[in-house]
Amino acid sequence: MAQRDGMVEKHGVGRWLTHLGLIIGILIICFPIWFAFVASTVTQEDIIRPPMPLWPGPHLIENYSRALFSGVNTPVLNMLFNSTVMALGITLGKIVISILSAFAIVYFRFPGRMLCFWLIFLTLMLPVEVRIVPTYEIAARLDLLNSYPGLILPLIASATATFLFRQLFLTIPDEIAEAARIDGAGPMRFFWDHLLPMSRTNIAALFVILFIFSWNQYLWPLLITTEPEMNTIVMGIKQMFPSGDDWADWPVIMATAILAMLPPVCVVLFMQRLFVKGLVESEK
């Protein structure tokens, strides 16, 4: 790495300007989050009499426990639980149904195989934002409003994940399947003993990306959960704003914002390698 820059500007003012530019960029990007954090540690009075302090105050525990245990419409702890169920449900659901269908499409020949492939492919063109009203009507007809299956099921079909697994399976040498077959292993034995272990890293990378995607869902939970007890944290935060001219409870709302971004941000920070791998692969 150090070697490759041998010839190109190694020293001088340029180098310091580079660092300065990056640091300014990072500060600007982190600014909004710093403000949210500060707001979650001060009192409402500190906030509604601007300028707001720029350094954290002493009310962190008070604000966060008020958010977690009482909240505005429903305790944030409850919304965090709903978000966790939804995010894990969508993530695992997508992975399971995608890996199974990719397995079928790659390792079997059956009438209608190409039709299945194209039906799954076409879902790429049908994001939930485009078909919100009819999807809502169908969910209502199936009695899925205000339920976990209602939050999860409509979002678990995944063309991207299916393609990813298909791509991966196509790179696995035929000899492995051949050997398994000679050993008398059936297709499901082969799937469990060979395919699944070989897909481990890809599954992990996909898990990271899908978890962030699912946790951050907004529109669908907004439609399908009308009871505050079923709200997820990302959509529930909007419901915490009063509808009239009342003051919003800013310290609690900002504490909620911090809590809402904590799980996905931790996933990115602690699983950075998998995150980058997943991000690059899921866009191919």
Partner: peptide, 10 residues
Amino acid sequence: IWPYAVAPAI
């Protein structure tokens, strides 16, 4: 890269 994880709503 970590702001990637922040939801659009947040």
